[in-house]
Structures are given as C-alpha cells and as structure tokens.
Design a binder for these strands. Structure first.
Lengths: 154, 154
DNA sequence: CCAAATAGGACTAAACTAGTCCCCTTTAAC
DNA sequence: GTTAAAGGGGACTAGTTTAGTCCTATTTGG
C-alpha cells in the first residue's frame, strides 16, 4: 500500500549521511562509498535535492554537498516532495486531471482529506528523526472531529 | 507523493455504491452503470474485494454483490490491502527483500515506523467515512512521544 | 591547463498499472 | 433441461512509471 519510491528511500539514506557529516561538504563519491549506493544514482539524487533547496552544493574541484539546514529542520514531507514531485494520493485529486466520475464520485474528497492529513503528519517528522534508528514507533491518531464517528445526518 | 492506485480509488467508489445499496445484492453491471466505471473493471474489482472478504457474492442469475459488513466496520486500510496487496511504504521493509544497505542504512526502520503509523490511522477511517463527502478534514498528529522532538543523546 | 567536481538532461531496460478478454461454473427462470 | 444471467479465475496487452546509466557542459582548485 501507500508506497514511496526506492529513490526516495535512498534519498533519505543519502541525506542521513550528510546529516552525519555536519557542516563539511561531502562529494557524491564519498556519499556513494559510505552508503553503498551507486555513484550515478547518488549523484542524481543530490542534484535533485540541491534543486529543491534541501542541500547546498559547491561546484568544481573540492566541491560537494551538505545539508542546507539543520537535520531537525528538514521534514519528511519536503524530502518526499523533492524526490517524487507533487503527486497526490489519488489521481483525480491532482490539479487539472478532470475525472469523469466527479459527479458520481463523492469519494475523492475523502482521500484528499486523508492525503492532507498524512502530509501534515509528515511535516512533523524531521530528517533527524528519520536518521535516528530504533526510536519508538510514533502513534498517529485523529484529533478534533474523529473521522470514524458516524453522523446520523444523511 | 504517497499514492494509491487508480484501481483502489475506483474500488472505493464501487464500495461506496454498495454501501448505498444496503442489504440488497447489486450486480456488477448495475454498479458499473451507477458509477460510470467500465464493467470489466468493476467486475475485476468486485472479484478481488470478494476474495478479500469485504463483499459477499451470490453466483448465478440474479446474483450480485453486497458489503460483507456494515460500511462503518470496513476500514480504509482493509480496502487498500485488498486492492494493492501487502505492499509496504519502502521496498526494503517488505518481508523477504533483503536490502544490501541494511548495515549502513539505519533509515528503513524509520519509514517502517511511519508506515505503521499511517496504517493505524487508516484503520480508524471507515468506508462510511470515505463515502461521506464534505466532512471536515481530519487532523493527524503524533501522540505519545512526538517523533519530531530532538533528543540530545547521540 | 588539467583534473576533480557539480549541472542538466537524454536514454533504456525493467517493472508495474489499467484495462480487456476469454472460458468456466453456478443458478434462476421458462 | 435448456438457456441466459451472473460470478470466478486468470491470461494477456498497451501504456506508463521507475531506476539506473551515461554523456556533455560548466565550474574551480592546484
């Protein structure tokens, strides 16, 4: 179910390594060696992350990458957005795709709401959290009006 | 980001229609006509949902489908599981796929935790909720130990 | 100038998705 | 009992997406 791509997963590994490197710039080759991910792939990831503003880069010899901000201030949602683009949980909730069933559907908006909710949750998870293994499993639950409470109105 | 497949989305529409039909059995053709989704697709969806135990079916002439339980007792997580299979948020957190980076990674477990957390949330959303349009957007947040709180320990 | 790097994007093979189709079994109605 | 309506179970295919590689700039330290 609900899947993020392998590249996003790798991206997290790469970012976690940069978090570990602190303020020093690390080259793509260094990161590749340290993480065991192929250099071309690491390179591609870092380029994308740089364009998204999550990492800073220096070109030329002795160049490299480092986190643009503290690991505690980079969110899981940003990482996903950077590497997967602004894809939505359902196709018909994406900007312009106009689903034929709209009139009949009545459902899309619910998935959209779930989508928004999940995004909010991911906004609360930092790269620092992701990089820290063995932390206790967080618990989501609904706040405010619980969506699972039946309303008697039609 | 975090996407469910179009088929799962359709599946929800189909289930929502069955929820509306109540205890009566509706044929795949009826559902297709009512939802505007192609008959072969509806048929495929209903077969899958029947195998997953979310709908009951009667074969033969005058046969059809209806929800196996009350719409309030079918969860979004079940629908996703039935239609997308037990896929996990990251590849390496799936049962047997053995990621080479495991030793280096340290990250997988975090996504896994997020995965579990999202699943829990989806367990709290019923088909009845999904079928009801225009409900207020639910709000997720972390309960217990907030994962975004930095710990000073290394 | 040269070598080490990043920037950007083209390209390809593999995997997955969505959708269709076919043949079988079950069952109600005539 | 025959027929037609309906579900059961897959096989198959076109299209899309993903993952990964590679090539050609451009930048910059020595």
């Amino acid at each position: 179910m609900l899947r993020i791509s392998k590249l996003t997963d790798y991206g997290t590994v790469v970012l976690a390594h940069l978090a570990h490197s602190g303020a020093a710039y690390a080259s793509a080759s260094e990161v590749a060696a340290a993480t065991g991910i192929g250099l071309p792939t690491v390179s591609k990831l870092l380029k994308t992350l740089a364009r998204a503003g999550l990492v800073n880069s220096i070109r030329g010899a002795q160049g490299g990458y480092r986190l643009a901000r503290d690991a505690g201030r980079i969110t899981a949602a940003e990482v996903i957005d950077a590497l997967e683009g602004p894809v939505s949980i359902t196709e018909c909730s994406a900007s312009d795709s106009h689903c034929d069933l709209e009139a009949v559907c009545n459902v899309g908006s619910a998935w959209q709401r779930i989508n928004v909710a999940i995004r909010r949750a991911l906004d609360d998870i930092s790269l620092a959290d992701l990089a820290r293994a063995n932390a206790p499993t967080p618990r989501f639950h609904f706040a405010g009006t619980p969506v699972s409470v039946e309303r008697t109105e039609k």
